[in-house]
Design a protein around this nucleic acid. Structure first.
Lengths: 206, 206
DNA sequence: CCTACCGATCGGTAGG
DNA sequence: CCTACCGATCGGTAGG
């Protein structure tokens, strides 16, 4: 009994360790993919970043493609959680909307997230991986839908259709292209401008 | 005289031919860069597309980087011309704005343009090339500035600052990511939605 | 997880 | 513009 307990403990510790190394790889790969792009990042770059030899990442992932998928799903999952926390307890649709915009910008711009990889390496994903990632992405976007519908009902946005939603995401996602931390505008300021742009019928309802 | 005339003619024809081949390479490279990305496109792909051998593109361009720069400047120049033609003769700021939005979407979405390369391969550009491309890009964006200022004065948009302008470009540029020809929405329909989104104070000024 | 390695590919060049 | 080629690098694997 004592022996099997010990064995289980060892196995658990080993499993935790493996999970940690895997998570480290995902984080390092994410950062590199964001900075240099998927194609321009080599397995050797990633291995270096976590202090491994070039062959070792393949102990944790069966291919570079597989790492990309893992990075994206990790980023999406973190985003999904942040988003749910942001709107939790809010009732007013405009407040919810403001919270979603702010949360989305933070996820995209704060540099400890792997999320932006999703935005720019979509093309590098294999067809099979893409299907898996889309499933999580749909869950993320689904949170916006009812909020937009309520805003439409309240007359605060002109349209809540698919095109309008994609234009909105575009304006927000594009920010990764030009935002520089410590630059002209803070994340909060950009969020304010964006909200103002989308809810523009706002102040002049007499 | 006859001989030197002939020589000149031959030289001119040769120069034109070289220019044609160069232009063909730019077009083929542009299409491949849009479809597969800069890194994933090989010189051999490009050479194949125009019926050359793998070493020959280097007769026209000194490096792959150089081709990328040429593709971007070509795309920007075409866009600049299309844009100027679109607003020529228009007086009303709202009309000008509508024309600019439509022109921009056409340039981005109609598949004979190299413009989208600019949007997604910015990172692949070397620092030196980037400076050259930025100069042309600034001229393109400069056309929007006075139009937005007039719209602001007329109370049709909330803000004409840098952030607002970038959010606007973001919404439009992002369309490349999801637009599919023959899909749910036409370019004109998307343009309408975008204009409606940006000029949202419009219809309800009593 | 490391060592040692392989096959393939890629950007680029010399010489004509 | 082609032929023939090179050096470098890269994703991935076998065997421990």
């Amino acid at each position: 009994m004592a022996r099997s307990e010990k064995k289980t403990a060892v196995r658990k510790a080993a499993a935790a360790d493996e999970g940690n190394r895997r998570a480290e790889l995902i984080r390092a790969a994410g950062r590199l993919f964001v900075d240099k792009g998927f194609d321009a990042t080599t397995i050797r770059d990633i291995a270096d970043a976590v202090g491994m030899r070039s062959g070792s990442p393949f102990y944790h992932f069966k291919s570079k493609q597989d790492m990309l998928k893992a990075v994206m799903i990790e980023g999406l999952t973190a985003a999904l959680e942040a988003q749910q926390a942001a709107v939790a307890g809010l009732k007013d649709p405009e407040e919810k909307f403001r919270a979603l915009v702010r949360s989305h910008l933070r996820i995209i711009l704060e540099d400890h997230t792997e999320f932006p990889v999703l935005l720019y390496e979509w093309r590098a994903l294999s067809d099979e991986s893409r299907a898996e990632v889309i499933a999580v992405k749909d869950r993320y976007e689904a949170v916006w839908q009812p909020v937009l519908r309520e805003l439409k009902k309240a007359g605060r946005i002109a349209d809540d259709g698919k095109v309008a939603r994609l234009l909105l995401f575009g304006a927000l996602n594009w920010v990764v292209q030009w935002y520089r931390p410590g630059g002209g505008s803070s994340i909060e300021q950009i969020a304010e401008r964006a909200i103002e742009l989308f809810l523009c019928g706002k102040t002049d309802k007499r």
